[in-house]
Design a protein around this nucleic acid. Structure first.
Length: 128
DNA sequence: CTTCTTACA
DNA sequence: TGTAAGAA
């Protein structure tokens, strides 16, 4: 199928599919006229890419990971566990980020909790 | 009509 | 990522 059909089937802009190719995530064949020819399996690949991207992985990491994915789900295939290290680091990175954000939220909560109601301010501003 | 590449906002 | 331009 050509880029238009794949884009329609996975719900993304053709532009994005060309971008994925630039990032080494997709390697469609070329028709003699130069059109990109995608295989059926690319539909799943794009879905995997989207899942991994949503998980916060870089396109570079995803490129390494893709060949280790089954066509079914975004599960790591048993035949290549050499990437577990990277994924574990990625997991740690996310944990660190979550901790930072939690701290930021606690700070915001503190400000919200100590907010003084308008009525109180109005009363103190115009004492009788 | 669809896709391609390249370049720019 | 979007869009524009010119060609296939």
């Amino acid at each position: 199928m050509r880029i238009g059909e794949l884009a329609r089937r996975v719900g993304v802009a053709p532009r994005l599919l060309r971008y994925y190719e630039e990032q080494g995530l997709l390697r469609p064949h070329r028709s003699p006229s130069g059109y990109r020819e995608y295989a059926e399996g690319d539909v799943d690949v794009v879905h995997h890419v989207r899942t991994l991207l949503a998980a916060g992985l870089s396109t570079a990491t995803i490129a390494e990971l893709l060949p280790c994915m089954g066509a079914d789900g975004p599960r790591l295939i048993a035949s290549c566990p050499e990437l577990l290290d990277d994924l574990q680091r990625e997991r740690d990175r996310l944990t660190a980020m979550i901790d930072e954000l939690s701290g930021a939220r606690d700070g915001l909560d503190a400000v919200i909790a100590t907010a003084v109601p308008d009525e109180v301010l109005a009363t103190s501003a115009a004492p009788s």
